[in-house]
Design a binder for these strands. Structure first.
Lengths: 181, 181
DNA sequence: TCCTATTATGCAACTTGTTGCATAATGGGT
DNA sequence: ACCCATTATGCAACAAGTTGCATAATAGGA
């Protein structure tokens, strides 16, 4: 499970509150690991119980906003977890199941859906390219920046793959297409 | 959720029992959608309750093996589900979280793990190439075969991407490497 | 024949993630 | 002053997948 460690990473980058974390999970971190506000609040509480983070300004000025900060034990745990070795998770994609179903029960509307996915992946790709242009076009490359760029490149590669694959799939599904299988 | 429909697809390809399904989920179908025997037995029962499959030879010759067969309602449901439209699931990869953690807490043992992953992905890639050679080297292309080939190609593309990415990541992580950040 | 490994089935408890709803507080418009 | 949209936090129930264990039956070897 990655959520606690994703939270630790985000809080090390900058201490903040649950709702701010939720916002950040809709952007950068969330491109590769999503979490709802529910998961975040639940997990922050757990991290606090474990002594990995601590809440600042428990009931501060306006609102009830509570910022969290990583404690040394949390930083140590993050380091341990990051260096741990794991098996690569196998692929798991519903689209593949649906393509195999198509193969068995003949033509369906699947091609329409894949056309729509193609659009979604093209959008993501454009977004990632824009971010790359904005954040990584100059050549200043600290280790930190190189690693963040690397993660973005994974997104670029993955979306490119999906765009290619959707096009291939559409070609196959349309070949003996809507009219004459 | 794809499991019930993955099971329907597998049972349409060939009716069989829970344990046989588990075996098939370790091979072909399981390359893209994994399931434990627990999930399979639990789900088969549910599919039977829904009237989508029916059990043959309820307590046949040897063992207690019970083969399941898809009913017309199950076939209809599979068709409906296959044509349904969905949002593309966003990327979700623990490795990206760990790379971002690396960026924040400085050098860790992560590069060792990525080297090991590289090996795993190279193995998968070799396996998929072998399957492609064995099953798809002649040019006889029915719609069914083309679709199955397409799914395999997704696996080939994905593993190729991972191999490339692991090599890139190792390069970045080793650059200011173990000795001198 | 008996022992054991393998195959086949299943329950129960747990983890992770999702959904729907509830509540509190603030700030801006009227 | 009052209403209301927004922000921030949280509970409870559910859904999906995992893990550990249990049980039955048969096949094959000692």
């Amino acid at each position: 499970m990655s959520l606690p460690h994703a939270l630790l990473t985000a809080l090390l980058e900058r201490p903040c509150s649950g709702s701010e974390l939720a916002g950040r999970f809709d952007r950068s971190i969330g491109f590769f690991w999503q979490a709802t506000h529910q998961q975040i609040y639940r997990e922050l509480k757990r991290l606090e119980d474990l002594g990995w983070v601590t809440a600042l300004e428990p009931e501060a000025g306006r609102g009830r906003k509570r910022a969290y900060q990583v404690l040394p034990a949390g930083r140590e745990e993050l380091r341990r977890w990051t260096g741990e070795s794991r098996e690569a998770k196998p692929l798991r994609d519903e689209l593949m199941v649906r393509l195999r179903a198509e193969a068995v029960i003949g033509p369906t509307d699947l091609v329409r859906d894949i056309e729509s996915r193609l659009g979604q992946h093209l959008e993501k790709l454009a977004l990632y390219r824009e971010i790359e242009r904005r954040d990584f076009s100059d050549g200043a490359d600290s280790r930190q920046r190189e690693l963040r760029h690397l993660v973005l490149q994974a997104g670029l590669m993955a979306e490119t793959l999906w765009v290619d694959f959707c096009r291939q799939a559409i070609a196959v599904l349309s070949a003996d297409g809507p009219g004459n299988p």
